[in-house]
Nucleic acid binder design. Structure first.
Lengths: 211, 211
DNA sequence: ATCAATTACTACACGCGTGTAGCAATTGTG
DNA sequence: CACAATTGCTACACGCGTGTAGTAATTGAT
């Protein structure tokens, strides 16, 4: 019996984890890292923790990534792509500018659904503005800034076409983004806190008031 | 010469830091911790880092606090009190309800000034939603929730008295808090990004539009 | 079945933060 | 000036994460 080799209890060699090609292992490890981040935050990610999560020893991780920074960078690339893809699907390419209010309401609806349906993607972005590796912060910050610029442009256009009050588009863009992120966080932390319809209804009410 | 005691170079004893009574040392250490948090974030706080910042060895810190958790808890008590005090001063005790709009604008003005004039107090609160010790997160979360409730009440009252659109007060309260925190963060990270007047003017414009 | 390539594991050397025991300097009081 | 109380320092033992060298198991192709 290999489980009782002799009289002496030898350290008992660890059973081999399933042998897996590098490309597959890489994705597995990224998944493990993501799970850790979602479950316990950025502070909890370490080569060691990732290896454990994946049921593997550290050298296996080092066989695929140079170090934690490298791994997190790769993970960010992947998650950033996923998030931007969802955003692109949510923001319609050819917006119907004849009814801006409906457009806004529909978009809000789609955004809420996106966050609700893929929390693994959005939590590390929305629930982590700080206390994370500078590496991560910088990336998210950059995407946020670019989004703010786009939104500012849309607002200038929208306010002109729609009539209603003329406001400082840039300031309002920041405010809107802040609100989006805040409710995104609530949706992640406590999905049942607000019904989707309740949020959408408030937007509708606000828009109706702004004439 | 004590600097060259003999032929052998003995390890060179560290010069004694100024001897200071415990009560004073306690505050000094809290100040050091706060400086570290403000400069490098919650991740950077450690007994070791605090001792270095204060120009003292670790056992000195352990002479005053049991451990990092204890120290951070005490720091939180102090900073929470300071923040709540400033908030109380900013929110007038006997609001003049006859002109709600002016009240809102004035309050916004005072809030902006408060953050600008005491960044050491506000940065650890506003720039740190996550990636910080659970201990800290929970405390800030609780204060935020209580503030949201108060704000919801004020909004219900305000909307009724003022006329204008009737909106979901709770949702709007969350949105307003999100915007406040977001601009607070911008003020801390980049104080010159938006002039105070520009922000206040946008609020004024929004209120005028909401009739 | 054998063998070479691939993949995984063990074991070690480091660095850094924690927490503590024992010793040393300082200070103010008689 | 002496001395006791107070405050600070050195030195150590741990725990945990990093990164690597050397070795062992697995697997697919011959």
């Amino acid at each position: 019996m290999s489980s009782a080799p002799g009289g002496q209890s030898k350290p008992a060699r660890r059973p081999y984890a399933a042998r897996v090609p590098v490309d597959v292992r890489r994705e597995q490890l990224l998944d493990s890292a993501l799970r850790i981040i979602v479950a316990d935050g950025y502070d909890a990610v370490s080569i060691d923790a990732i290896a454990k999560e994946a049921g593997v020893t550290r050298p296996v991780v080092y066989g695929v990534f140079d170090n934690l920074r490298d791994l997190l960078g790769t993970l960010l690339d992947r998650q950033q792509a996923r998030a931007l893809k969802q955003l692109a699907e949510v923001l319609p390419p050819a917006p119907d500018l004849s009814d801006p209010d409906a457009l806004v309401v529909d978009t809000a609806h789609r955004m809420i659904d996106a966050v609700r349906s893929d929390p693994m993607t959005w939590q590390p972005i929305l629930l982590a503005p700080h206390g994370m590796p500078e590496q991560v912060r910088a990336r998210i910050e950059a995407d946020r800034a670019s989004f703010t610029i786009q939104l500012t442009g849309l607002l200038e256009l929208g306010m002109a076409m729609r009539g209603g009050p003329v406001l400082d588009a840039e300031v309002v863009a920041h405010a809107i983004l802040a609100v989006l992120e805040h409710f995104g966080r609530i949706l992640l932390a406590d999905p049942d806190r607000f019904e989707t319809d309740r949020l959408v209804a408030t937007i509708t009410g606000l828009l109706r008031a702004l004439r």
